[in-house]
Design a protein around this nucleic acid. Structure first.
Length: 263
DNA sequence: ATGGCCAATATGATTGGA
């Protein structure tokens, strides 16, 4: 079973690219971020006609996450625990039944947090603390769990072509990386790092300054696996070639293949 | 010179992204 995540930077602008990539990779489950539309404007029909079930947690203009699944959803729940005042659409959780048990998948869009001297950064850090609490609870279920999305976190120097350029950035500051490590230390496994020791494993290249041409990338889109999922991992990878397509997102898809049987 | 872009919005300038 292939499960993927992709920050598409507007689902409407990216529909042709998304359909081309789905035909190429044929994932069973897809987590989308930055759909940048309300639920009613999501191009649901385009995905349903390919056999996907669709779940959307959108909002006007910014943010917005979604899930596509060839298997039906048992349950879908928008929103991250821990702040009932938070109205930003950044989190969507689903449970899906398999032949033997379930798989639980989250599509998440962690706040950017820049500039780091503002309340945007404190919101990011609080959001990470909430994600930690959520994960600690869900791990108690001892199920295959995948936390997939745009984390806006560069975990290590090796995850940036030019780490020195990011030292004052909300994606890389010590409190950000400390929280990402704390999350992993609950027992979650970074699928890409578990699958490959290659250098240059990036998932984002800025539109500006010729970043793609210079391979000036960062790895900020992650799939974290519970032990029950990691034990079933076959492979994981990053579809960097998609960044070279016409009218690309600034992020590319990240995927994992798990030995989990459909019903 | 440390910049160069892209998407959405009661839109032609501003905001947000990373």
């Amino acid at each position: 079973m292939r499960i993927a995540t992709w920050n598409v930077n507007s689902v409407k602008q990216r529909l042709d690219n998304i359909l081309a990539w789905l035909a190429e990779r044929r994932p069973e489950i897809v987590c989308l971020q930055e759909i940048k539309c309300v639920d009613a404007d999501f191009p649901r029909d385009a995905f349903e006609s390919l056999g996907y079930n669709v779940a959307v947690h959108g909002q006007k203009a910014f943010n917005g996450v979604a899930l596509l699944s060839k298997l039906p959803f048992d349950e879908v729940a928008p929103g991250l625990i821990g702040d009932s005042e938070d109205i930003q659409a950044r989190f969507l959780e689903a449970q899906i039944s398999l032949r033997d048990g379930v798989v639980r998948v989250v599509s998440l869009y962690l706040p950017n947090g820049n500039p780091a001297t503002t309340e945007k950064y404190t919101y990011k850090l609080r959001w990470m603390d909430r994600l930690f609490s959520f994960s600690r609870e869900r791990l108690k279920l001892e199920e295959p769990l995948l936390l997939c999305g745009d984390y806006n976190v560069i975990p290590m120097p090796a995850d940036a072509r030019n780490p020195k350029a990011w030292v004052n950035d909300a994606l890389y500051l010590p409190p950000t990386r400390e929280r990402f490590r704390a999350l992993c230390n609950l027992g979650l496994i970074d699928a890409i790092r578990a699958a490959s020791g290659d250098a240059d494993l990036y998932s984002f290249w800025d539109y500006q300054a010729g970043a793609w041409a210079k391979n000036d990338g960062i790895r900020i889109d992650h799939i974290l696996l519970s032990p029950q999922a990691a034990d079933r991992m076959i492979d994981a990878g990053i579809d960097r070639h998609v960044r070279g397509w016409e009218k690309p997102s600034d992020h590319v898809p990240v995927y994992v293949d798990l030995a989990l049987d459909a019903r």
